[in-house]
Design a protein around this nucleic acid. Structure first.
Lengths: 376, 376
DNA sequence: GTCAGATACTTAACCGGATAAGTGCCCAAG
DNA sequence: CTTGGGCACTTATCCGGTTAAGTATCTGAC
């Protein structure tokens, strides 16, 4: 089956291909009658513009690039990226832009990918994730003059417009919530230390802890459950274990919860847990995890919209979107060793007292969460 | 900054652009001296071929398409897709092919995307996932003569080569394992019923249950934790609850585990749980979930390799890869109401008896799993 | 010495669109 | 009746590569 071209349409319509081009692009220069005839033929034979041809003359590729620089095992478990991609995609495909995805091994490879995409005219712009402190991708993008949107704090995006959430504010809110509950020993298990948002959260953490008279503990991790489990185990067996732990993603928080349960540390009475980034996962475990929730697909959609604007030549500014909201669930409570009354009477074998009926009440919060999710 | 073209190189080298083209593509027709000079210049000015131009003359786009037809909330929680993408990508980028991703709302949209990609020459081939029973995408791909690799059972791929795993065998192995443990009431909570692999697993499930004298219970779900929780709750509160449940993905299995724990049903003694598709998630929960593990990135890599072969014009055959292996963990055991000795002595508040020291033994299996993962 | 054939190039044409610069033709104003 | 100007088109050219089809120049065999 041969792909139809504008020449095919021209032949059928008995006009030149330029007339067809004008007609299909809404330009003046063809009569309304001819235009309709041409459009009808195009529709009939199922014509779509050959992107390569368009790109060659118009210097546009109608594609946007996204390079992901994380090992496969992290990519697959982190719901964040797939959520982001969904959001980006929804926005792009609505304007018939394509998303070109590349997984790279390290930052050098990523920079090379940008250079190649630019030289090959593969993409019209890129979305940059995982902004680093003093990020060397930024000058390259500037040098290439490649339209870009940075997902990350404008302090690190070196003049390139970005979309960012106020992580510091969210962190302060969370710590203050824990302090209000009565916690005085709070630990934070971080994501990759080279990421800018890790540094920003760290700084905010130390600041709010100092201000609140809380002993901060900061441990760097790598987003994996293994690492989180190891660190949590160490923290909980120390002389003065924290009464609350903030994890920099949901996977680490779930792993931390599992370790606590293994070690016989009751959550939330003996240990409160907060996860950064909400996901269905946080509501699947028991107790459900208090989380910093944000609208990830919306975040991606916004980024895509702004990138398309930048590609269209608009001057775009950095904008804030979707600062995480603290969603308290069962994993945070006042610190103390007395478990809540309902659980106290649990039989030795049972992990909780709720009967099948009691569990029905468990649908309450689940239902609420489902509703919240739909609201975003 | 202007993008360098072969004409720039030609000018610098003092030859025609055709000579440059020959030199850069390893064709005969240029002397070794000239070739080296041209390559040096190309390297120096950072030339990469303009993909649009290449595509226009060569009729190749050097891109592969992947359309995902699942709602965002499922995409983001299912590690399968991101794992698949990582694997596909690794293979593609090694041969400097790009991956074009599109998230679509339904099958009609997906078919439209294929038609558009084909007409636009956006991609040289596609990878098709989530094969349905009597899949209407297949005839379209055949009609368009668009190179494709189906990820799914060849019984449904209508002559188009695919890559598949023997789900029926894996399911039979799992049920036989449960039967050997002594289970006689086994339930299976399935994924989307319209997917071919769901039907294949269902059929195998009923067959092996009948053969083994086991009462099968089949309930259709949709891969979400909410749905799984609802169904599990219903099953467990029925008159004759199953003693083992097979879930069609990890998220549903984790949700099922949470419900059991909520309801005071001990896993694994009162209820055994098996998850289809392993992920770090399965090892984070407590007890760790027995799972059907497979090498998802490898699966994707294989698919990409075969697709590239098909694009290169080779005739490719369907091939089997990565039939899931059953990885027994703590969530499966002989059915019975006596919890194992070590847990029996648990204090009322504790969810497990393991002390900090006891938890150290927990690193044993975790270490093993990490090693296994690296092996793939 | 000459002629075939290889070598090392060049020129021309093409891929499928976009776009600048014509070219008839009709209508209306002067 | 002429001229000017818009309308509806066409022709020519370009984007940056690939490929077919020349064309000199050199080499070697007869």
């Amino acid at each position: 089956m041969k792909r139809p071209t504008i020449s095919d349409i021209a032949q059928r319509a008995g006009v030149s291909k330029v007339a067809v081009s004008y007609a299909l692009n809404g330009q003046t220069g063809v009569s309304e009658t001819t235009r309709r005839r041409i459009l009808a033929i195009a529709e009939e034979i199922g014509w779509s513009p050959n992107r390569a041809a368009r790109a060659l003359s118009g210097a546009m590729s109608y594609a946007v690039g996204l390079a992901l620089c994380r090992p496969a095992r992290i990519l697959s478990i982190e719901p964040f990226f797939m959520g982001l991609i969904s959001g980006v995609e929804a926005e792009l495909s609505a304007r018939s832009y394509a998303l070109t995805l590349q997984v790279v091994a390290d930052l050098d490879a990523e920079v090379e990918v940008y250079r190649r995409w630019w030289a090959e005219r593969r993409v019209d712009g890129v979305i940059v994730v995982d902004l680093r402190t003093d990020d060397r991708r930024i000058p390259v993008l500037a040098e290439l003059n490649l339209p870009a949107v940075i997902i990350g704090d404008p302090r690190g995006s070196g003049g390139i417009a970005g979309i960012w959430s106020d992580d510091a504010a969210a962190l302060v809110e969370t710590v203050e919530y824990l302090v209000a509950l009565g916690h005085r020993r709070i630990a934070r298990i971080t994501g990759l230390p080279e990421l800018l948002h890790t540094a920003i959260r760290d700084e905010a953490f130390e600041r709010v802890c100092r201000r609140s008279g809380v002993t901060p503990t900061l441990v760097a991790a790598d987003y994996t459950g293994e690492e989180s489990a190891r660190i949590t185990r160490r923290l909980l067996s120390s002389a003065h274990p924290p009464t609350a732990v903030l994890y920099d993603n949901d996977v680490m928080a779930v792993a931390g919860l599992a370790v606590a349960q293994e070690m016989g540390v009751t959550v939330p009475t003996e240990l409160s847990i907060v996860a950064w980034d909400d996901s269905p996962l946080c509501q699947l475990v028991h107790p459900a995890l208090t989380a910093l929730s944000r609208d990830v697909p919306g975040y991606g959609g916004h980024a895509a919209t702004r990138l398309l604007a930048a590609i269209a030549g608009e001057r775009i500014e950095s904008c804030q979107y979707g600062t995480p909201r603290l969603v308290p669930r069962g994993s945070t409570a006042r610190p103390g060793h007395q478990p809540p009354a309902r659980r106290e009477r649990a039989g030795p074998a049972a992990r909780g007292t709720r009967s099948a009926t009691g569990a029905g009440s468990g649908t309450g919060p689940a239902g609420t969460d489902a509703r919240r999710k739909r609201d975003r």
